[in-house]
Simulated assay, not measured.
Amino acid sequence: MLLRVRVTLPDRPGTLGQVARTLGVAGADIVQVVVLERLGGRAVDDFTVVWPGASRVDRLLAGLAAIPGVQVNGMWRAIGAPTSGGQDAELLAQVAANPGDGLATLVDAVPGLLAADWAAAAVVPADWAVRSGSTTAAGDTGGEPAVAYASWRAPTPLRLPEVTPLRARAMPGPTGTHFAAAPFGRAGLVLMVARVDAEGLTAANFHVTEVDRIAQLVRAAAVILGDRLDLITAPPPAAARS
């Protein structure tokens, strides 16, 4: 199976090699390394590795923890290797080529770009607010968020954290779920992307660089789709509501 391993490590020669050797000795085959951050003598790196499905991850975690200065921020199962920014342009080209399905194309593709589990586009009413730390089922009655489109791995009913005020950010959700949100700038439409703890593994929160990437994709898609998004967010006619 594919695992994503996020580590914080000293940004000095040799440490990255130590992490890579430790992964290899434990039985992991590295297929990709992504540097998320280098700041103040520390770096945050994501490793995507092939891991024997029958093997326990305890020895992998123990080996990484034994390296001086290395901290494991998260380890979770990935559907595929996260793609680089070059695929973002290809995705936006697909959205532009078929704008009628543009929102669905974006929502379906984003989880694969960021090693996430699912994504959804939801319309958040301007007056929607819930208690801090609580969650609400999207699509229920009472002026709560309505799901415009969700990827195939999204749970039903879909439960979202509080996202008002609308701005691009990472946020906690229900226990074991990690969210990132980015607004389209169109009548409360927001893209939610989620990672879920599963199989005894703990996923990492979305890094600021990942949030920025999601926000850039959403802004570009909003420009491409334009008035089509207004049709999605428009309230139903009075006759339909009655």
Rank of each mutant, 00 (worst) to 15 (best):
G188N: 08
I224M: 06
A65D: 14
A89E: 15
P99G: 12
V50R: 10
G102N: 05
R38S: 02
A215H: 01
H207I: 07
G53E: 15
F179A: 00
L36E: 03
W118E: 15
G80W: 04
V218C: 06
D227G: 01
V95T: 13
A234F: 02
L231E: 15
V130T: 06
A54F: 09
S84D: 12
A65M: 13
V130L: 04
V110L: 01
V33Q: 06
A66C: 11
V35I: 11
L229F: 13
L189H: 00
E37A: 12
V57T: 14
S134D: 12
G139Y: 04
A204G: 05
A97C: 07
D227S: 09
V57W: 14
A180W: 04
T136G: 02
M171D: 15
V5C: 08
A204V: 11
P111W: 02
G143W: 01
A168K: 06
D108V: 02
L225V: 11
S55Q: 14
A240K: 09
A204Y: 02
D197Q: 13
S242C: 03
V95L: 12
A138C: 08
V196K: 08
V50T: 10
P125C: 02
V196C: 06
A194F: 00
T105I: 12
T202A: 15
E210I: 01
V95M: 15
G24R: 01
A122E: 03
V218G: 08
G188K: 08
E90V: 07
I214K: 03
A198G: 11
A222G: 10
L229P: 00
A93P: 08
P174T: 04
G69S: 07
E210T: 06
L23P: 09
V70F: 13
A122H: 00
I214E: 12
L61P: 07
P111L: 02
T202R: 10
A65W: 15
D45Q: 15
D230N: 05
P161R: 00
A116Y: 02
V49P: 12
W51H: 10
R131H: 09
G41A: 07
A122N: 14
L201H: 05
R42P: 05
F184R: 02
A170K: 00
T105Q: 11
A43W: 13
Q18D: 11
L201P: 12
A148Y: 04
Q94G: 10
A93Y: 01
A116F: 03
L64G: 09
A120P: 07
G40R: 08
T136N: 06
N98Q: 09
P145E: 10
W76N: 07
D127Q: 09
L229Q: 05
P155K: 12
W128D: 00
G112D: 13
P183N: 07
A170T: 01
R21H: 09
A96D: 15
D108A: 07
S134Q: 10
R169S: 15
D45F: 15
V218T: 06
N205V: 12
V49D: 14
G188L: 04
D227N: 11
L103T: 03
A28S: 09
D117T: 07
A234D: 07
A198M: 01
G74M: 13
A168W: 03
A222K: 01
G226K: 11
S134C: 05
E210L: 01
L36Y: 09
L166T: 04
G102Q: 05
T233I: 04
P125M: 03
P237S: 05
A120M: 11
D108H: 00
L64D: 00
Y149P: 09
D88I: 05
F206N: 06
R131F: 14
P174I: 05
A154M: 08
G17M: 12
T202D: 13
